[in-house]
């Protein structure tokens, strides 16, 4: 379990006093992680559609091509299945590829290489080979890009043994989790969020890793535990602030990695508060919060529940275009305030 100050290393050789916090945007933090990894290790390279001179569809790779050249910041044709497959092969043959997929929706084009190849090769070969690779892709709605450019697909990946799945919600985590993902000898899917790219936060200048598999406690609370991922974390924090004004003490947990999942921190928190509100942008049915709900009710926290475990999710519908429809399709701060308040007052 980590503390609320997730940007600070819990232990390790980097002295936290020496790490001068400065502010970066989430996308700058991603870029800095890639730059530091590429500077430190020749095996690390980035490739994907328009990651070179264009600087990435969301500007994340930015000037990296000018710093590392076109071999290591490599533009690819529009060819998701091919480039993810090439990452699998490059990883098998000793490189440390980072693939950028422009929108996480487009991973559907590459799913064979993700789910049948990357995820399974280490296991199918009895451990004789590893596939170290990182697939970065932005997900989420809120940009008016409609149903094929706005999905939250984390449950697809989290359902596949062999993949690790990361969802950074802060700039510091965007850097620290990506560094851990690049270190990892397994395929890691890093789902960034489009709405977070321009959000700023303190980010250590040093390459400080945030370990995979540690739930962050963003806020402590005694009445209800809110578990949220991606852009829902900041909405949950805003909701918790408003709930506090109404006398409801809501804690906010951010799992940060779905595989491996630190459910211990979640279960412990729910055992203490007796109430769990699970918030995700993705549609409710078969979503990852269903897994977290199951982990809670399978745990000793079950006996401490004072209210049914509750989910607040995106509608079971594709993401629509019209702004008023798009907003209605996924949880907003008001929805979290209302739902958490009900849980506390009704039970």
């Amino acid at each position: 379990m980590t503390t609320t100050s997730d940007t600070r290393p819990a232990s390790g050789p980097v002295d936290s006093a020496a790490v001068e916090p400065r502010t970066l945007t989430y996308s700058e933090a991603v870029r800095e992680a890639m730059a530091q990894a590429m500077a430190a290790d020749d095996r690390v390279f980035l490739f994907g559609e328009d990651v070179g001179t264009y600087g990435g569809a969301f500007g994340v790779s930015g000037d990296l091509v000018h710093r590392f050249g076109t071999e290591r910041v490599r533009d690819t044709p529009i060819s998701e299945l091919g480039i993810v497959g090439a990452a699998v092969g490059a990883g098998l043959a000793g490189m440390r590829p980072i693939v950028e997929i422009q929108f996480s929706d487009f991973t559907a084009q590459a799913m064979d290489q993700i789910a049948n190849q990357a995820a399974k090769i280490h296991f199918m070969l009895g451990g004789a080979a590893t596939v170290p690779m990182v697939l970065r892709a932005p997900g989420g709605s809120g940009t008016g890009a409609a149903a094929q450019h706005s999905q939250s697909l984390e449950a697809w990946f989290a359902h596949v043994p062999g993949l690790k799945v990361v969802m950074p919600s802060t700039a510091a985590d965007a850097k620290g989790l990506l560094l851990s993902a690049i270190d990892d000898p397994n395929p890691v899917i890093v789902l960034e969020h489009k709405l977070l790219y321009k959000q700023s936060g303190p980010v250590p200048e040093e390459p400080v890793r945030v370990p995979l598999g540690e739930t962050a406690v963003r806020r402590t609370g005694t009445d209800v535990t809110i578990v949220a991922t991606g852009v829902m974390v900041s909405r949950a924090l805003e909701a918790a602030e408003r709930l506090a004004a109404d006398g409801v003490s809501a804690g906010v947990l951010d799992p940060r990695t779905l595989r491996p999942l630190d459910d211990r921190t979640i279960v412990d928190s729910v055992a203490a508060t007796g109430r769990a509100l699970l918030v995700q942008e993705a549609p409710k049915t078969g979503g990852f919060m269903s897994e977290i709900a199951a982990r809670i009710v399978e745990s000793p926290a079950f006996g401490r529940l004072q209210a049914p475990v509750s989910r607040l999710c995106g509608l079971d519908a594709p993401i629509p275009y019209a702004p008023q429809l798009e907003q209605a399709a996924v949880p907003q701060v008001d929805d979290i305030v209302t739902k958490a308040g009900e849980l506390v007052r009704r039970w």
């Binding site: 819990a10 390790g12 270190d183 890793r209 370990p211």
Partner: peptide, 11 residues
């Protein structure tokens, strides 16, 4: 997991 490959530390 192996060693960190890109220098620096594990938090």
């Amino acid at each position: 997991a192996g060693e960190p490959i890109a220098g620096g530390a594990r938090a």
